[in-house]
Design a protein around this nucleic acid. Structure first.
Lengths: 218, 218
DNA sequence: CTCCAATAGAGAATTAATTCACGAATAATA
DNA sequence: TATTATTCGTGAATTAATTCTCTATTGGAG
Protein backbone atom coordinates (compact mmCIF):
# COMPACT_ATOMS: atom_id res chain seq x y z
CA UNK A 1 0.00 0.00 0.00
CA UNK A 2 1.37 3.36 -1.02
CA UNK A 3 0.61 6.53 0.79
CA UNK A 4 -1.19 9.05 -1.30
CA UNK A 5 -1.02 12.83 -1.00
CA UNK A 6 1.16 12.83 2.13
CA UNK A 7 4.93 12.93 1.86
CA UNK A 8 6.21 9.91 3.64
CA UNK A 9 8.84 11.28 5.99
CA UNK A 10 8.49 13.04 9.32
CA UNK A 11 9.42 16.66 8.81
CA UNK A 12 11.43 16.89 12.04
CA UNK A 13 13.62 14.10 10.72
CA UNK A 14 14.02 15.81 7.36
CA UNK A 15 15.14 18.95 9.14
CA UNK A 16 17.81 17.09 11.08
CA UNK A 17 19.37 15.34 8.10
CA UNK A 18 21.29 18.36 6.74
CA UNK A 19 22.82 18.80 10.18
CA UNK A 20 24.04 15.21 10.18
CA UNK A 21 25.50 15.81 6.77
CA UNK A 22 27.47 18.63 8.20
CA UNK A 23 29.04 16.55 10.92
CA UNK A 24 29.74 13.82 8.38
CA UNK A 25 31.57 16.03 5.91
CA UNK A 26 33.79 17.17 8.75
CA UNK A 27 34.52 13.55 9.66
CA UNK A 28 35.28 12.78 6.03
CA UNK A 29 37.81 15.64 6.01
CA UNK A 30 39.35 14.02 9.08
CA UNK A 31 39.56 10.73 7.15
CA UNK A 32 37.23 8.81 9.41
CA UNK A 33 35.78 5.78 7.70
CA UNK A 34 33.03 4.82 10.13
CA UNK A 35 30.77 6.61 12.57
CA UNK A 36 28.17 5.47 15.09
CA UNK A 37 24.83 7.04 15.92
CA UNK A 38 26.08 7.59 19.42
CA UNK A 39 28.91 9.71 18.13
CA UNK A 40 26.66 11.87 15.95
CA UNK A 41 24.13 12.18 18.74
CA UNK A 42 26.79 13.41 21.16
CA UNK A 43 28.02 15.99 18.68
CA UNK A 44 24.53 17.41 18.23
CA UNK A 45 23.05 16.83 21.69
CA UNK A 46 20.44 14.43 20.36
CA UNK A 47 19.19 10.99 21.35
CA UNK A 48 21.11 8.15 19.64
CA UNK A 49 17.92 6.25 18.81
CA UNK A 50 16.52 9.33 17.18
CA UNK A 51 19.60 9.67 15.02
CA UNK A 52 19.38 5.98 14.12
CA UNK A 53 15.75 6.25 13.06
CA UNK A 54 16.46 9.37 11.05
CA UNK A 55 19.34 7.71 9.25
CA UNK A 56 17.24 4.62 8.58
CA UNK A 57 15.00 6.81 6.42
CA UNK A 58 17.80 7.03 3.89
CA UNK A 59 18.02 3.25 3.58
CA UNK A 60 21.50 3.00 5.09
CA UNK A 61 22.48 -0.25 6.79
CA UNK A 62 25.04 -0.18 9.56
CA UNK A 63 27.35 -2.75 11.06
CA UNK A 64 26.96 -3.56 14.75
CA UNK A 65 29.98 -2.56 16.81
CA UNK A 66 31.26 -0.42 13.92
CA UNK A 67 28.60 1.99 12.80
CA UNK A 68 27.97 3.36 9.34
CA UNK A 69 30.37 4.09 6.50
CA UNK A 70 30.83 7.87 6.53
CA UNK A 71 31.05 8.14 2.77
CA UNK A 72 28.05 5.91 2.15
CA UNK A 73 26.03 7.82 4.72
CA UNK A 74 26.85 11.12 3.05
CA UNK A 75 25.76 9.73 -0.29
CA UNK A 76 22.55 8.26 1.07
CA UNK A 77 21.56 11.46 2.89
CA UNK A 78 22.30 13.56 -0.17
CA UNK A 79 20.21 11.22 -2.28
CA UNK A 80 17.37 11.34 0.22
CA UNK A 81 17.43 15.13 0.29
CA UNK A 82 17.48 15.26 -3.49
CA UNK A 83 20.94 16.81 -3.44
CA UNK A 84 22.42 14.22 -5.77
CA UNK A 85 21.00 15.90 -8.85
CA UNK A 86 21.54 19.42 -10.15
CA UNK A 87 18.43 21.57 -10.31
CA UNK A 88 18.26 24.83 -12.21
CA UNK A 89 16.69 27.71 -10.36
CA UNK A 90 15.81 31.34 -10.88
CA UNK A 91 15.74 34.02 -8.22
CA UNK A 92 13.34 36.95 -8.23
CA UNK A 93 14.05 40.02 -6.14
CA UNK A 94 17.68 41.14 -5.99
CA UNK A 95 17.50 43.09 -2.73
CA UNK A 96 19.71 42.50 0.26
CA UNK A 97 18.60 38.96 0.88
CA UNK A 98 18.42 38.04 -2.80
CA UNK A 99 21.95 39.29 -3.31
CA UNK A 100 23.17 37.34 -0.31
CA UNK A 101 21.65 34.15 -1.69
CA UNK A 102 23.28 34.73 -5.08
CA UNK A 103 26.62 34.97 -3.32
CA UNK A 104 26.14 31.86 -1.26
CA UNK A 105 28.42 29.44 -3.09
CA UNK A 106 27.61 26.53 -0.85
CA UNK A 107 24.25 26.00 -2.55
CA UNK A 108 26.09 24.37 -5.43
CA UNK A 109 26.94 21.54 -3.06
CA UNK A 110 23.25 20.99 -2.59
CA UNK A 111 22.55 20.79 -6.29
CA UNK A 112 21.05 24.25 -6.50
CA UNK A 113 22.13 26.10 -9.62
CA UNK A 114 20.79 29.64 -9.86
CA UNK A 115 20.95 30.37 -13.58
CA UNK A 116 19.30 33.79 -13.74
CA UNK A 117 17.98 36.46 -11.42
CA UNK A 118 15.18 38.95 -12.01
CA UNK A 119 14.18 42.32 -10.65
CA UNK A 120 11.87 45.14 -11.61
CA UNK A 121 14.19 47.94 -10.52
CA UNK A 122 15.98 49.34 -13.65
CA UNK A 123 19.04 50.12 -11.54
CA UNK A 124 19.56 46.44 -10.91
CA UNK A 125 18.64 45.12 -14.35
CA UNK A 126 21.29 44.05 -16.85
CA UNK A 127 23.96 43.82 -14.20
CA UNK A 128 25.78 40.67 -13.13
CA UNK A 129 25.87 39.78 -9.44
CA UNK A 130 28.20 37.03 -8.31
CA UNK A 131 28.28 35.80 -11.87
CA UNK A 132 24.51 35.66 -12.26
CA UNK A 133 22.75 37.90 -14.81
CA UNK A 134 19.94 40.07 -13.53
CA UNK A 135 17.14 40.54 -16.05
CA UNK A 136 13.90 42.49 -16.11
CA UNK A 137 11.10 40.49 -14.56
CA UNK A 138 9.23 40.91 -17.85
CA UNK A 139 11.59 38.40 -19.37
CA UNK A 140 10.77 35.80 -16.75
CA UNK A 141 7.86 33.98 -18.47
CA UNK A 142 9.88 33.49 -21.62
CA UNK A 143 13.07 32.32 -19.97
CA UNK A 144 11.44 29.99 -17.49
CA UNK A 145 9.74 28.10 -20.30
CA UNK A 146 12.78 28.05 -22.56
CA UNK A 147 15.22 26.72 -20.01
CA UNK A 148 13.90 23.91 -17.88
CA UNK A 149 13.70 25.59 -14.48
CA UNK A 150 12.86 23.40 -11.46
CA UNK A 151 13.00 25.84 -8.58
CA UNK A 152 11.91 29.42 -8.10
CA UNK A 153 13.32 31.51 -5.29
CA UNK A 154 11.17 34.42 -4.17
CA UNK A 155 12.99 37.23 -2.39
CA UNK A 156 10.63 40.10 -3.24
CA UNK A 157 8.45 41.96 -0.75
CA UNK A 158 5.21 40.51 0.47
CA UNK A 159 3.10 42.65 -1.86
CA UNK A 160 4.66 41.20 -5.03
CA UNK A 161 5.18 37.63 -3.84
CA UNK A 162 1.92 36.11 -5.08
CA UNK A 163 2.28 37.75 -8.47
CA UNK A 164 5.76 36.30 -8.85
CA UNK A 165 4.55 32.90 -7.70
CA UNK A 166 1.82 32.98 -10.35
CA UNK A 167 4.39 33.63 -13.07
CA UNK A 168 6.45 30.73 -11.81
CA UNK A 169 3.47 28.40 -11.76
CA UNK A 170 2.67 29.37 -15.32
CA UNK A 171 6.23 28.44 -16.19
CA UNK A 172 5.68 24.94 -14.78
CA UNK A 173 8.03 25.34 -11.87
CA UNK A 174 8.07 22.37 -9.49
CA UNK A 175 9.17 23.98 -6.25
CA UNK A 176 9.16 27.45 -4.72
CA UNK A 177 11.54 28.58 -2.01
CA UNK A 178 9.67 31.53 -0.58
CA UNK A 179 11.40 34.12 1.58
CA UNK A 180 8.50 36.59 1.47
CA UNK A 181 6.29 36.72 4.56
CA UNK A 182 3.21 35.72 2.62
CA UNK A 183 1.26 32.47 2.29
CA UNK A 184 1.34 31.64 -1.40
CA UNK A 185 -1.57 30.12 -3.23
CA UNK A 186 -0.35 27.53 -5.72
CA UNK A 187 -1.64 24.31 -7.30
CA UNK A 188 -1.24 21.03 -5.42
CA UNK A 189 1.64 19.81 -7.54
CA UNK A 190 3.86 22.76 -6.72
CA UNK A 191 5.81 22.43 -3.50
CA UNK A 192 6.36 25.54 -1.42
CA UNK A 193 8.88 25.90 1.36
CA UNK A 194 8.65 29.09 3.38
CA UNK A 195 11.58 30.70 5.13
CA UNK A 196 10.83 33.50 7.51
CA UNK A 197 13.64 34.89 9.58
CA UNK A 198 11.11 36.42 11.96
CA UNK A 199 10.00 32.92 12.95
CA UNK A 200 13.45 32.02 14.12
CA UNK A 201 13.93 35.36 15.84
CA UNK A 202 10.61 34.83 17.58
CA UNK A 203 11.72 31.48 18.94
CA UNK A 204 14.89 33.06 20.26
CA UNK A 205 13.30 36.08 21.91
CA UNK A 206 10.34 34.20 23.34
CA UNK A 207 12.67 31.63 24.89
CA UNK A 208 14.75 34.46 26.29
CA UNK A 209 11.64 36.01 27.75
CA UNK A 210 10.34 32.77 29.22
CA UNK A 211 13.77 32.11 30.65
CA UNK A 212 13.97 35.55 32.23
CA UNK A 213 10.53 35.34 33.83
CA UNK A 214 11.26 31.81 35.01
CA UNK A 215 14.37 32.98 36.81
CA UNK A 216 12.38 35.80 38.41
CA UNK A 217 9.66 33.56 39.75
CA UNK A 218 11.63 30.48 40.85
CA UNK B 1 3.86 24.00 40.48
CA UNK B 2 6.25 25.67 38.08
CA UNK B 3 8.02 23.86 35.36
CA UNK B 4 11.75 23.87 35.75
CA UNK B 5 14.39 23.76 33.06
CA UNK B 6 11.94 23.29 30.16
CA UNK B 7 10.48 26.26 28.33
CA UNK B 8 6.77 26.04 28.71
CA UNK B 9 5.51 26.42 25.17
CA UNK B 10 5.35 23.93 22.31
CA UNK B 11 7.90 24.99 19.74
CA UNK B 12 5.59 24.34 16.78
CA UNK B 13 3.18 26.85 18.29
CA UNK B 14 5.92 29.39 18.83
CA UNK B 15 6.90 29.05 15.20
CA UNK B 16 3.37 29.75 14.03
CA UNK B 17 2.82 32.89 16.09
CA UNK B 18 4.88 35.24 13.90
CA UNK B 19 2.84 34.10 10.93
CA UNK B 20 -0.38 34.99 12.69
CA UNK B 21 1.10 38.36 13.50
CA UNK B 22 1.62 38.90 9.83
CA UNK B 23 -1.98 38.25 8.94
CA UNK B 24 -3.08 40.43 11.82
CA UNK B 25 -1.02 43.46 10.83
CA UNK B 26 -2.56 43.23 7.37
CA UNK B 27 -6.02 43.14 8.92
CA UNK B 28 -5.15 46.14 11.08
CA UNK B 29 -4.14 48.06 7.95
CA UNK B 30 -7.55 47.15 6.53
CA UNK B 31 -9.13 48.57 9.70
CA UNK B 32 -10.63 45.32 10.86
CA UNK B 33 -11.42 45.34 14.56
CA UNK B 34 -12.12 41.67 15.19
CA UNK B 35 -10.99 38.37 13.76
CA UNK B 36 -11.93 34.74 14.41
CA UNK B 37 -9.67 31.70 14.55
CA UNK B 38 -11.55 30.31 11.60
CA UNK B 39 -10.57 33.29 9.51
CA UNK B 40 -6.88 33.09 10.41
CA UNK B 41 -6.91 29.33 9.89
CA UNK B 42 -8.36 29.71 6.41
CA UNK B 43 -5.77 32.31 5.46
CA UNK B 44 -2.93 30.01 6.49
CA UNK B 45 -4.40 26.61 5.68
CA UNK B 46 -4.38 25.53 9.30
CA UNK B 47 -6.87 23.92 11.65
CA UNK B 48 -9.01 26.46 13.56
CA UNK B 49 -8.58 24.65 16.85
CA UNK B 50 -4.86 24.68 16.42
CA UNK B 51 -4.92 28.41 15.88
CA UNK B 52 -7.12 28.84 18.94
CA UNK B 53 -4.78 26.81 21.16
CA UNK B 54 -1.79 28.70 19.85
CA UNK B 55 -3.42 32.04 20.55
CA UNK B 56 -4.46 30.89 24.01
CA UNK B 57 -0.76 30.69 24.87
CA UNK B 58 -0.59 34.47 24.75
CA UNK B 59 -3.36 34.80 27.32
CA UNK B 60 -5.84 36.41 24.94
CA UNK B 61 -9.54 35.98 25.67
CA UNK B 62 -11.99 36.04 22.79
CA UNK B 63 -15.67 36.82 22.54
CA UNK B 64 -17.90 34.04 21.23
CA UNK B 65 -19.54 34.90 17.95
CA UNK B 66 -17.08 37.80 17.46
CA UNK B 67 -13.56 36.55 17.81
CA UNK B 68 -10.54 38.43 19.11
CA UNK B 69 -9.66 42.09 19.03
CA UNK B 70 -7.09 42.44 16.27
CA UNK B 71 -5.13 45.11 18.10
CA UNK B 72 -5.15 43.27 21.39
CA UNK B 73 -4.10 40.06 19.69
CA UNK B 74 -1.18 41.80 18.02
CA UNK B 75 -0.08 43.22 21.37
CA UNK B 76 -0.42 39.89 23.15
CA UNK B 77 1.50 37.96 20.51
CA UNK B 78 4.26 40.57 20.47
CA UNK B 79 4.48 40.39 24.23
CA UNK B 80 4.60 36.62 24.16
CA UNK B 81 7.36 36.63 21.57
CA UNK B 82 9.29 39.18 23.56
CA UNK B 83 8.88 41.75 20.80
CA UNK B 84 7.43 44.38 23.09
CA UNK B 85 10.84 45.38 24.41
CA UNK B 86 13.85 46.68 22.52
CA UNK B 87 16.92 44.47 22.72
CA UNK B 88 20.35 45.63 21.72
CA UNK B 89 22.30 43.26 19.54
CA UNK B 90 25.67 42.97 17.85
CA UNK B 91 26.40 41.17 14.62
CA UNK B 92 29.66 39.42 13.87
CA UNK B 93 30.61 38.60 10.30
CA UNK B 94 29.73 41.21 7.68
CA UNK B 95 29.68 38.93 4.66
CA UNK B 96 26.77 38.59 2.25
CA UNK B 97 24.32 37.31 4.81
CA UNK B 98 25.50 39.61 7.59
CA UNK B 99 25.12 42.60 5.30
CA UNK B 100 21.64 41.51 4.30
CA UNK B 101 20.62 41.25 7.95
CA UNK B 102 21.99 44.73 8.66
CA UNK B 103 19.82 46.05 5.87
CA UNK B 104 16.69 44.31 7.01
CA UNK B 105 14.76 47.20 8.54
CA UNK B 106 11.85 45.05 9.60
CA UNK B 107 13.80 43.69 12.56
CA UNK B 108 13.17 46.97 14.35
CA UNK B 109 9.52 46.01 14.49
CA UNK B 110 10.53 42.94 16.41
CA UNK B 111 12.52 44.87 18.97
CA UNK B 112 15.89 43.91 17.52
CA UNK B 113 18.31 46.81 17.52
CA UNK B 114 21.66 45.99 15.96
CA UNK B 115 23.96 48.59 17.48
CA UNK B 116 27.33 47.51 16.12
CA UNK B 117 28.78 45.00 13.68
CA UNK B 118 32.18 43.31 13.76
CA UNK B 119 34.46 41.70 11.23
CA UNK B 120 38.07 40.64 11.05
CA UNK B 121 38.59 41.66 7.42
CA UNK B 122 40.36 45.08 7.37
CA UNK B 123 38.55 45.98 4.16
CA UNK B 124 35.26 45.93 5.99
CA UNK B 125 36.37 47.49 9.25
CA UNK B 126 35.62 51.14 10.06
CA UNK B 127 32.96 51.37 7.40
CA UNK B 128 29.27 52.00 8.01
CA UNK B 129 26.75 49.60 6.50
CA UNK B 130 23.10 50.57 6.55
CA UNK B 131 23.89 52.99 9.32
CA UNK B 132 25.67 50.42 11.48
CA UNK B 133 29.38 50.82 12.28
CA UNK B 134 31.63 47.89 11.51
CA UNK B 135 34.47 47.47 13.99
CA UNK B 136 37.39 45.12 14.32
CA UNK B 137 36.41 41.98 16.15
CA UNK B 138 39.18 42.77 18.65
CA UNK B 139 37.00 45.55 20.02
CA UNK B 140 34.13 43.15 20.68
CA UNK B 141 34.92 42.12 24.29
CA UNK B 142 35.19 45.71 25.38
CA UNK B 143 32.08 46.99 23.66
CA UNK B 144 29.85 44.10 24.63
CA UNK B 145 30.58 44.70 28.30
CA UNK B 146 30.29 48.46 28.10
CA UNK B 147 26.95 48.59 26.36
CA UNK B 148 24.41 46.13 27.68
CA UNK B 149 24.07 43.74 24.76
CA UNK B 150 21.34 41.10 24.92
CA UNK B 151 21.67 39.30 21.62
CA UNK B 152 24.61 38.20 19.50
CA UNK B 153 24.16 37.41 15.83
CA UNK B 154 26.75 35.08 14.34
CA UNK B 155 27.16 35.27 10.57
CA UNK B 156 30.75 34.10 10.30
CA UNK B 157 31.91 30.85 8.74
CA UNK B 158 31.66 27.60 10.62
CA UNK B 159 35.35 27.60 11.52
CA UNK B 160 35.14 30.86 13.51
CA UNK B 161 31.66 30.42 14.98
CA UNK B 162 32.61 28.79 18.29
CA UNK B 163 35.32 31.33 18.92
CA UNK B 164 32.87 34.18 18.38
CA UNK B 165 30.31 32.48 20.59
CA UNK B 166 32.89 32.21 23.37
CA UNK B 167 33.56 35.93 23.20
CA UNK B 168 29.85 36.61 23.39
CA UNK B 169 29.42 34.33 26.38
CA UNK B 170 32.27 36.12 28.15
CA UNK B 171 30.39 39.35 27.48
CA UNK B 172 27.35 37.96 29.30
CA UNK B 173 25.15 37.78 26.24
CA UNK B 174 21.74 36.20 26.86
CA UNK B 175 20.87 34.86 23.43
CA UNK B 176 22.71 33.89 20.27
CA UNK B 177 21.17 33.86 16.82
CA UNK B 178 23.49 31.53 14.99
CA UNK B 179 23.59 31.42 11.20
CA UNK B 180 26.77 29.36 11.05
CA UNK B 181 26.34 25.65 10.31
CA UNK B 182 27.93 24.64 13.59
CA UNK B 183 26.55 23.36 16.89
CA UNK B 184 27.71 25.87 19.47
CA UNK B 185 28.77 24.90 22.95
CA UNK B 186 27.51 27.45 25.47
CA UNK B 187 26.45 27.50 29.13
CA UNK B 188 22.90 26.53 30.06
CA UNK B 189 21.75 30.07 30.65
CA UNK B 190 22.56 31.21 27.12
CA UNK B 191 19.87 30.52 24.58
CA UNK B 192 20.92 29.58 21.07
CA UNK B 193 18.70 29.61 18.02
CA UNK B 194 20.18 28.12 14.88
CA UNK B 195 19.21 29.17 11.37
CA UNK B 196 20.46 27.05 8.54
CA UNK B 197 19.24 27.78 5.07
CA UNK B 198 20.34 24.33 3.98
CA UNK B 199 17.74 22.81 6.30
CA UNK B 200 14.94 24.60 4.54
CA UNK B 201 16.38 23.84 1.11
CA UNK B 202 16.60 20.19 2.13
CA UNK B 203 12.94 20.11 3.05
CA UNK B 204 12.05 21.62 -0.32
CA UNK B 205 14.20 19.35 -2.46
CA UNK B 206 13.42 16.17 -0.56
CA UNK B 207 9.70 16.86 -0.86
CA UNK B 208 10.18 17.50 -4.56
CA UNK B 209 12.01 14.22 -4.87
CA UNK B 210 9.42 12.24 -2.90
CA UNK B 211 6.70 13.85 -4.97
CA UNK B 212 8.40 12.98 -8.23
CA UNK B 213 9.00 9.35 -7.28
CA UNK B 214 5.45 9.07 -5.97
CA UNK B 215 4.06 10.18 -9.31
CA UNK B 216 6.27 7.64 -11.08
CA UNK B 217 5.13 4.70 -9.01
CA UNK B 218 1.41 5.37 -8.60
C1' DC C 1 38.43 -20.07 20.81
C1' DT C 2 35.64 -17.71 24.20
C1' DC C 3 34.06 -13.83 26.29
C1' DC C 4 33.08 -8.93 26.40
C1' DA C 5 31.66 -4.44 25.00
C1' DA C 6 29.69 -1.58 21.55
C1' DT C 7 26.36 -0.96 18.37
C1' DA C 8 22.51 -1.66 14.96
C1' DG C 9 17.75 -2.59 14.50
C1' DA C 10 13.02 -3.23 15.70
C1' DG C 11 9.06 -3.09 18.49
C1' DA C 12 6.85 -1.23 22.79
C1' DA C 13 6.00 2.54 25.73
C1' DT C 14 5.82 7.17 26.46
C1' DT C 15 5.27 11.88 25.49
C1' DA C 16 3.97 15.71 22.53
C1' DA C 17 1.05 17.70 19.16
C1' DT C 18 -2.99 17.84 16.53
C1' DT C 19 -7.69 17.15 15.69
C1' DC C 20 -12.34 16.10 17.19
C1' DA C 21 -16.54 16.83 19.91
C1' DC C 22 -19.35 19.36 22.63
C1' DG C 23 -21.12 22.94 25.90
C1' DA C 24 -21.56 27.90 26.76
C1' DA C 25 -21.74 32.55 25.27
C1' DT C 26 -23.20 36.12 22.31
C1' DA C 27 -24.72 39.03 18.49
C1' DA C 28 -27.92 39.19 14.74
C1' DT C 29 -32.49 38.22 13.04
C1' DA C 30 -37.24 37.22 12.87
C1' DT D 1 -38.36 38.34 23.05
C1' DA D 2 -37.20 33.86 21.22
C1' DT D 3 -34.41 31.64 17.85
C1' DT D 4 -30.43 30.76 15.23
C1' DA D 5 -25.78 30.69 13.68
C1' DT D 6 -21.20 31.55 14.96
C1' DT D 7 -17.40 31.15 17.73
C1' DC D 8 -14.81 30.51 21.96
C1' DG D 9 -12.93 27.34 25.28
C1' DT D 10 -11.97 22.86 27.07
C1' DG D 11 -11.47 18.05 27.66
C1' DA D 12 -11.19 13.69 25.05
C1' DA D 13 -9.47 11.12 21.22
C1' DT D 14 -6.27 10.53 17.85
C1' DT D 15 -2.03 10.79 15.54
C1' DA D 16 2.83 11.81 15.33
C1' DA D 17 7.29 11.87 17.35
C1' DT D 18 10.46 10.56 20.72
C1' DT D 19 12.46 7.60 23.97
C1' DC D 20 13.00 3.12 26.10
C1' DT D 21 13.95 -1.89 26.05
C1' DC D 22 15.57 -5.78 24.33
C1' DT D 23 17.87 -8.94 20.95
C1' DA D 24 21.31 -10.02 17.56
C1' DT D 25 25.63 -9.08 15.49
C1' DT D 26 30.32 -8.15 15.32
C1' DG D 27 35.19 -6.84 16.26
C1' DG D 28 38.59 -6.97 19.67
C1' DA D 29 40.76 -8.67 24.04
C1' DG D 30 42.16 -12.29 26.78
Amino acid sequence: MRKIRKFSAPEPSMRRLPTYLHVLTRLLRENRLYVSCTFIANELYLDPTQVRKDLALTGIVGKPRVGYSVQELIDKIKAFLGWDVQRDAILVGVGNLGTALLGYQRFRLYGLNIVTAFDKDPRRIDKTIFGVDVLSVEKLPNLILRKKIDIGIITVGEEAAQEVADLMVQGFIKGIWNFAPKTLIVPDDVIVENVQLSVSLGVLTSKMKLFETEKDTV
